[in-house]
Design a protein around this nucleic acid. Structure first.
Lengths: 207, 207
DNA sequence: CCGGTTGTTGGACAGGTGCGCAATATCGGC
DNA sequence: GCCGATATTGCGCACCTGTCCAACAACCGG
């Protein structure tokens, strides 16, 4: 089809891969799927990417990186440290069938077997932990939080919400978004030395 | 090969599937892999299982169910509630390349796409939460723990250790077993109203 | 307007996938 | 010892997988 500059084409391939992965998941996405989604031949994809694993890693990195950047921007606007953490928890809890988090599940599972995906998944996860650690430091600095170990607290909070979101997305029935929000809030309050209920409802006090 | 009774053969198939899954992971395990592992033809497998998904679900259920039962037995021998929880955390932390936990990662990822696997994974996960909730109730009853919401605490602790173990197994480098144990212990102490350090080292106070 | 650079094609290649079925081998009951 | 029941085989079917490459076509500098 239409001839593109290499940069644009690479982007188009990643876009198409992401569109397919959204429907089918990361691992089941094939070269031919992506080619068909773009409306091109499949040979084109190997002209730009060393292997299919690299395409999938790039697709995962795109969506996970965007999510991270958006959250970063969201938190920058949130105001005081308490609101930042409340906003973080609310935005992390899956809504509906959260295909982005499903891609995280795929990435974690594949990370053990595909080095290229492990690299991407590991890097993005470290990014989330760092984001959270910065938010905690800010709250400790201005006296909102009490926390002796911000790095540990960041990993504990992140692991908790990952573990909870995992149940919501993978099993759908065991626990729901409401449970997740309530439980993540109460644990995080304890973690940051906040009074019980301080993180209960993210934005306006409305039930 | 050797003719078997249906019950024995079903067991042999599940055993073989588990042996392969241990090496390759759950999703990449194929009918032919399992047949070769047993030293039989592949047609035999479809004579006993409705589909390959059912084989994989049975294999996962076998290993996850055994783990759960072993932990249940371990905790029954552990003594006081504090020791039970300490033992739980220690046994949950992955050692080396934890192939059993890798199967959990596979199961969670596939749960969204394969109903048969979702059913198994969901049920086993509920089993672990119930185990933990019982242990907490016991500690609250005899005054060792202080916990207003044992069900929530069970899910929070389970989700936390799942999230931490996930990092250890999938990424290998981001955090290690030591971090995981320390962080799981400190969060659980807060969760159960124990003094800091009460769960620090599982068995003997050494280092 | 032409020629070389290069984005793109489309199919070949060697293998792998789950599943189903006729034929065969082996067993337990008589 | 035979025979019916059934465990097991071995292969075929239709399809999918990543990767590669010779041929083609579109664009850009001259």
């Amino acid at each position: 089809m239409a001839r593109m500059t290499p940069d644009r084409r690479r982007e188009a391939i990643v876009d198409a891969a992401l569109a397919v992965a959204r429907r089918k998941g990361l691992a089941p996405t094939t070269v031919r799927d992506v080619a068909q989604e773009m409306g091109t031949s499949s040979g084109l994809i190997h002209h730009y990417f060393e292997s299919m694993d690299h395409v999938l890693a790039a697709a995962f990195e795109r969506i996970a990186g965007e999510d991270l950047a958006e959250t970063e921007a969201l938190l920058a606007r949130a105001g005081d440290p308490r609101a930042v953490i409340a906003e973080f928890l609310d935005s992390y809890a899956p809504v509906g069938d959260d295909w982005a988090f499903q891609l995280w599940l795929d990435a974690w599972a594949e990370a053990g077997r595909r080095p290229v995906l492990r690299e991407a998944s590991s890097r993005l996860n470290l990014g989330w932990a760092a984001l959270l650690e910065r938010a905690i430091h800010a709250g400790v600095a201005d006296g909102t939080f009490t926390c002796a170990d911000p790095r540990g607290a960041a990993w504990r909070i992140l692991s908790l919400v990952d573990g909870l979101a995992l149940q919501v997305v993978a099993h759908q029935t065991t626990i729901d978004r409401g449970d997740m929000l309530a439980w993540a809030a109460s644990a995080t309050e304890r973690e940051l030395g906040l009074p019980a209920g301080a993180l209960a409802v993210p934005t306006p006090p409305r039930a």
